[in-house]
């Protein structure tokens, strides 16, 4: 009897997005303009998906979904393009009241994800006390410490995700992956908080190349939390995918200026409604041009 073959989790962008459903809660990894799974976000824009609740340390992922009317609710601490402080698509939709908000402290987002990952209903914290985070989120309760201090604490509820979408550097076919950029952000918390995790990567490589004794610490989580692996080189563009490429500030400026109906339709036609991720890369200037964008300095 031959041994069973290990699960090959490779799939396409559209196969991953086909596993999402209207109304789902989706976590999007990265941070603002860094290592966002933008190829997956654009795939969502091309799909009929709607009414999503999105949890994100927000950047152009949130802006694109807001501009395309995909958001029912946003769970967030901020939305920013860093070098361009305000994302105009988020801003316009937020000002129009186009989606519900659960506005949190950045750390509360993390605690909510960790609570979900630990399968507890909440985690206690002082974060949020004394602020409007509690007033604006009547669903967030406080509790009294059962110990001698008797302190009042915020019971940050678990932020359970139906799916997490992440962009990593390398992966093998089974989801053993590494994040080689300087900051892994909270991708691990999202993966553990989610029922299903889909990762795009710069390249799929053999296990021995992805992970050895020297770089095993760059692995954000074990493969058993990974549902699907999609090879999408430059899949974080226009956000940074360091060490491969920096933030495409010129592209972000163009995106951020495309706020009129005509401007947005034009941006969509040129950069979203394309037949493939390869077509996007070509439209965004091509591999060589993107690879030549220097890493950001702050």
């Amino acid at each position: 009897m031959s041994a069973a073959a290990p699960t090959d989790k490779r799939m396409t962008l559209s196969q991953a997005v086909a596993q999402l459903r209207d109304g789902m809660t989706v976590g999007i990894g990265g941070w603002a303009t860094r290592r966002k799974p933008m190829a997956l976000v654009r795939e969502i824009l091309r799909s009929p998906l709607k009414d999503l609740t999105v949890v994100s340390y927000g950047g152009p992922d949130v802006g694109l979904l807001a501009a395309a009317g995909k958001l029912r609710k946003l769970v967030f601490g901020f939305v920013s393009l860093d070098v361009l402080p305000l994302d105009m698509h988020f801003r316009n939709a937020r000002q129009a009241g186009a989606f519900e908000v659960m506005e949190l402290d950045e750390g509360l987002v993390q605690l909510g994800l960790r609570a979900a990952a630990m399968r507890v209903p909440f985690l206690p914290t002082r974060v949020g006390l004394g602020t409007d985070i509690l007033a604006r989120n009547p669903g967030i309760k406080t509790i009294r410490s059962p110990y001698a201090d008797g302190d009042t604490l915020v019971a940050m509820p678990a932020l359970k995700l139906d799916a997490a979408l992440l962009h990593v550097t390398e992966s093998d076919e089974r989801g053993n992956c590494t994040i080689q950029s300087p900051d892994p952000f909270f991708d691990e918390a999202m993966a553990r908080a989610a029922d299903r995790t889909f990762i795009t990567c710069e390249r799929i490589a053999p296990t021995a190349k992805v992970c050895d004794h020297a770089n095993a610490r760059l692995q954000p989580f074990e493969r058993s939390v990974v549902t699907g692996v999609i090879e999408a080189p430059f899949g974080a563009h226009p956000t940074a995918g360091v060490p491969g490429y920096g933030i495409d500030v010129e592209h972000l400026k163009e995106y951020n200026a495309a706020t009129t109906p005509e401007g947005w339709a034009d941006y969509r036609r040129r950069f979203v409604d394309l037949a493939s991720h390869d077509d996007y890369i070509a439209a965004a200037g091509g591999r060589l041009a993107i690879a030549s964008i220097a890493p950001p300095v702050y």
């Binding site: 601490g77 939305v79 937020r94 000002q95 949190l104 002082r126 949020g128 004394g130 985070i133």
Partner: peptide
Amino acid sequence: KPKAAILGARGFPGNSIS
């Protein structure tokens, strides 16, 4: 429906308490 949406609370709540 804010007159101006800026960033979001960012880390301010946790910073101020900590």
